[in-house]
């Protein structure tokens, strides 16, 4: 400090040197580097997620011709329509039923695959993943043929047992069943692979300890497997709930919301109103309803996961 006070010229020199080096140190700082490295992703999310989300909020406040601001007018209109409440009900039935069965089937199949000797396991794992790997738009087209009213392969087979013909996509309840069935077929492999990974991470010795402690097969699943898998089950369920709730392609291709709107869910109905019905603001309002419902589910499930943390 003392020699700086006696040599004012040196201070200026030091200042400019510090300026140059401050950029260097800023780059060296871990947080800066981390920010720069995540910047591409942040930009991507801003452009593809944040902007559309805010834009849809903006859209939802406009009138049909998108000329006038009407505040919550679109929502008021929706609340008065029976179809809207039908869609809410159907979306919930669709998502919850499908997720429950996907989780159940995934859990059971994962157990079967887990018990296959390691040699043959890869083959089975690969085959069982096929439904999840095929683009759903394509596989749903195949299902559409299987369900076709005039040459359904299912009805043909069932006719040998004196059953049918069943109006797979023609009757409201059967159509709901079909849509959910295809969704389960498509989504169960995802649960299977997640549960299988989680099953493999449970140490064998825990099962051995439980076997010696006197637990039977069912008690081992209830007291060891399920508690050890709770976090994975919660996260997988949440993830699947979001994806299933926001499903579009399967319903769109299989029934297009019919018959008489009885299989519409939020995404397909928003598409019907917004794009096909050329009322984009109303369609945006419909799609926004998915947010609060999913947010509540996410908060509950993630709070549970956080609370328990990693117990291992």
């Amino acid at each position: 400090m003392v020699d700086v006070a006696f040599q004012p010229n040196r201070v200026a020199g030091a200042k400019s040197a510090r300026k140059r080096s401050s950029l260097k140190t800023a780059l060296k700082r871990k947080s800066t580097a981390a920010f720069l490295m995540t910047l591409p992703l942040i930009l991507l999310i801003t452009i593809l997620v944040l902007y559309p989300a805010i834009y849809s909020l903006h859209l939802a406040t406009l009138n049909k011709s998108m000329q006038r601001f009407i505040g919550l007018g679109n929502f008021e209109f929706l609340f008065k329509r029976d179809t809207f409440w039908l869609v809410v009900k159907q979306s919930c039935i669709f998502a919850i039923t499908a997720v429950v069965f996907k989780a159940l089937i995934g859990f059971i199949v994962a157990h079967f695959v887990h018990n296959i000797p390691a040699k043959g396991q890869r083959k089975w794992r690969g085959m069982l993943l096929v439904p999840w790997v095929i683009p759903p738009a394509m596989s749903t087209l195949a299902w559409l043929w299987l369900f076709d009213p005039s040459y359904s392969a299912f009805n043909y087979t069932l006719s040998f047992f004196g059953i049918g013909p069943i109006p797979w996509t023609g009757d409201a309840n059967w159509a709901r069943f079909s849509v959910i069935l295809v969704n389960i077929w498509y989504g169960a492999p995802f649960f299977m692979i997640m549960y299988l990974a989680s099953l493999k991470s449970v140490p064998d010795q825990l099962y051995e300890a439980a076997a010696i402690d006197g637990a039977n097969w069912w008690q081992r699943i209830w007291y060891v497997t399920l508690p050890m898998m709770r976090n994975i089950i919660a996260i997988t369920t949440l993830f699947s709930l979001i994806v299933t709730f926001a499903n579009f392609d399967i319903v769109r291709i299989l029934t297009a919301g019919g018959p008489l709107d009885h299989t519409h869910i939020f995404a397909t109905w928003a598409f019907r109103i917004g794009i096909e019905g050329s009322d984009i603001p109303l369609g945006a309002s419909v799609s926004l309803f998915m947010v609060p419902i999913l947010a509540v589910a996410a908060i509950f499930i993630l709070r549970d996961v956080n609370k328990r943390g990693n117990e291992a």
Partner: peptide, 9 residues
């Protein structure tokens, strides 16, 4: 057991 095999939950 060698690694104790306590039930973590």
């Amino acid at each position: 057991f060698q690694n104790y095999a306590l039930y973590p939950h």
